[in-house]
């Protein structure tokens, strides 16, 4: 079982969370072209090793988190809030 260390709730079972997706995508602006949107929502790298992905603590604090996880071993290197302002707060509180 993957255990995720939520910055707000502490280490919890992955069953409390919902997987989001690739956390490194920069979604284009709403008026961007179909081509740009196609790139953003359909094309994904199939990473072997560590990747940044979003998880929603849906049965917890409801925060969206960026989790740096190995797709091979499930090892988790880091967990941060998605929102950049909250990331800063989390950094400062360390």
């Amino acid at each position: 079982m993957i255990r995720i260390n939520c910055p707000y709730c502490g280490e919890r079972d992955h069953s409390e969370f919902s997987y989001g997706g690739d956390a490194t995508i920069n979604y284009p602006s709403l008026d961007a072209s179909e081509k740009e949107w196609t790139e953003a929502i359909f094309f994904r790298k199939n990473i072997k090793g560590f990747q940044f992905e979003t998880w929603h603590h849906s049965n917890g604090c409801r925060m969206w988190l960026v989790v740096e996880r190995s797709t091979v071993t499930h090892e988790i290197k880091s967990v941060k809030p998605c929102h950049p302002n909250l990331q800063k707060v989390a950094e400062n509180n360390k």
Binding site: T54, H56, M63, W64, C82, H83
Partner: peptide, 17 residues
Amino acid sequence: AAKVMSWLEELLQTRWT
């Protein structure tokens, strides 16, 4: 209902911060 709620949270926390 649950899906829409998560979706709105995702947009606000990850995309339109």
